[in-house]
Each structure stands twice: as C-alpha cells, then as structure tokens.
Simulated assay, not measured.
Amino acid sequence: MDDTGWTGGPLLGFDTETTGVDVHTDRIVTAAVVVRTPRTTEVLTWMIDPGVEIPAEAAAIHGVSTEHARAHGRPPREALEEIAAVLARHAREGVPVVAYNAAFDLTLLDAELARHGLPTLPDRLGRPVAPVLDPLVIDRWQDRFRRGKRRLGDLCELYGITGEGDLHSADVDVLATLDVLEAQVLRFPDLRAVALDALHLAQRDAHQAWAENFNAWRALQGLPGPGASTAWPVEPRAAG
C-alpha cells in the first residue's frame, strides 16, 4: 500500500466468529486482532468458551463445536477484557479499526462486554469508536452499481486476493479484510487523500443511504422482517 496519507500508518483489523447473527444476544467464539503497518503484521487470536451451546449451523461455518470451545476456550470475561483492552489501546492512538461489516463485530463486542459487566469500547475511549474503515461499506459506496454478492469471499475473488487458510476463521478473515482494503485504495485512489475523520463520516452516510434504499426495495417486494439497520459503525444498544 502506498505509504502516503493514512495508508502509511498502522491499521487495526478486527473480526469475530460467533454463535449466531444476532448482535445483541449471540456470543463470540473466536476473535482476532491484527495490527498491520507497511512493514509488520502482528496477529492476536482468542478462542472463548461462550458459556452457551454453539449451534451446529454456526459450528459448521467456523469449525468450533461446543465441546471444543469448552475444552480449549478461555473464560469469556477474561478474554473479552483482553480483546477490548488491545482495541482501546490502539484506538486511543488514532489507529483506524478495520472490520468487514463493522457494525456486526463492534456491536456484538459491546453487547458481550456489557453482558459480563465490562466497559464497552466507547466507555473505555470516552467517545464513539472512530475512525472505522469498513471494506463492505466502501465497496457499496465506491462500486455501487456492480452486480453480484458482496461477501468477503466475493471481494477476495474480485480483487484476486488469496491467502493461507479458509475464510470464516477470524484471523484469516482479518488478513483478507486488510488485503481487500489495500486493493480498494489502489482501485479508488482518491480514498487515500481523504482524512480519516472525513472518511469515517462519509462511510456512515453511505451506509445510511444504502440501508434506506435496501429497506425501500424490501418494502416494495413485500418482504417481512426488520430490514437493514441504518446505524454504522455500531448499532444502538438493545432495550433492556
């Protein structure tokens, strides 16, 4: 990545694998934090015993069964404190958090921290988590009219990114996410000239516009369910 502007500084990648897709009630099973500079990559990983059964459908995706998590996983309160401390330490220094579909991982992490009586990331920072770089939001914003799906694997294929290991392992996903961001900066070079705070706000607005359009389309189709949240990079805390 060209080491001018924000692209020359460190990036803080984050990803989780979980018991399900409800950011307010599901639990983290594995997590990875990757600190990448133009010259170094530091990978930290955690496996957690979430204290609940891991559904077979979730285990089939990330490969961690209830039995395996109980045998090899860390106590959740202990591991969550470590994860949050690492993220907060770098975020205080202004290092951007990079996460694919950031609203999922950051919202889920805050819910988990609150569940275990620990300060959330905003509590630790004394402010909302920012700046955040989300390659999914950037893809929808910068390549709005491209057809096809926009999962992490789809963008890896689009940009010709290959790496060691299979996706749906938290550390592999973080490294792939950082590689996708690098490829996006090469394809959309104007991004590197945007200040991080402005880029954060632009993504927030782009996500809101996408969600509103998506929900309007769902309504026209008569599809049930709540649709997409307009909030980014963190969804509001669930009532109760």
Rank of each mutant, 00 (worst) to 15 (best):
P75F: 05
D171H: 15
P76S: 06
V64K: 03
D15P: 02
V29F: 08
T7W: 10
G225I: 14
E42T: 13
P128H: 05
P10E: 05
V174Q: 10
V64W: 06
L201R: 13
V35I: 13
V23T: 07
E235V: 08
G160M: 11
A111C: 08
V35M: 04
R115C: 04
D166N: 13
A84K: 01
G8A: 14
T107Q: 00
G160Q: 09
A170I: 09
R218G: 10
A103L: 05
G73F: 04
K149P: 03
A59F: 07
R192S: 15
P96H: 11
L12N: 00
G20K: 01
D166I: 00
H116D: 09
A60Y: 02
P10C: 02
A195Y: 04
S229A: 14
A216L: 13
L133V: 14
H200N: 12
D173F: 09
I48C: 00
G20V: 05
R70V: 06
A238T: 03
D205P: 02
A91N: 01
V33N: 00
T37C: 09
W141Y: 10
T45Y: 05
A238V: 09
A176M: 11
A209V: 09
L178E: 11
H90S: 00
D173G: 09
C156A: 14
L155C: 07
A71R: 13
T66V: 04
L125A: 03
V86F: 00
T230W: 02
P131R: 09
P135Q: 12
V86L: 08
P226M: 13
D179P: 03
G20F: 06
P10W: 01
D2S: 14
E164D: 15
V180K: 12
A206I: 08
C156N: 07
I161V: 14
R204K: 07
L155D: 10
A228I: 09
P135Y: 11
G165S: 08
T7C: 14
L191F: 14
E67H: 03
W46A: 06
L87C: 02
V29I: 10
S229C: 10
Q221T: 05
T4E: 14
R218N: 12
I54Y: 01
I83Q: 00
D105S: 12
G94P: 05
R92W: 01
Q221C: 12
T162H: 13
L178H: 10
H200S: 07
D22Y: 04
E82Q: 13
A211S: 14
L155M: 15
V64Y: 07
T107M: 03
R115Y: 07
L196Q: 11
E67D: 13
P122T: 05
D22Q: 06
L11I: 03
R237T: 13
G126E: 03
F145I: 02
T45C: 11
S229N: 12
P122C: 06
R218K: 13
T230P: 12
P50K: 04
V174L: 11
L125T: 06
P50N: 04
Y159L: 08
D22T: 08
L87D: 01
V172F: 12
A69T: 06
L125W: 02
V172W: 12
R39H: 14
E82T: 06
L109V: 02
T45M: 04
P131H: 08
D26M: 01
L80H: 03
V86G: 00
A71C: 04
A85K: 00
D171Q: 13
A193Q: 12
V35T: 11
V97M: 03
P233S: 08
R140P: 06
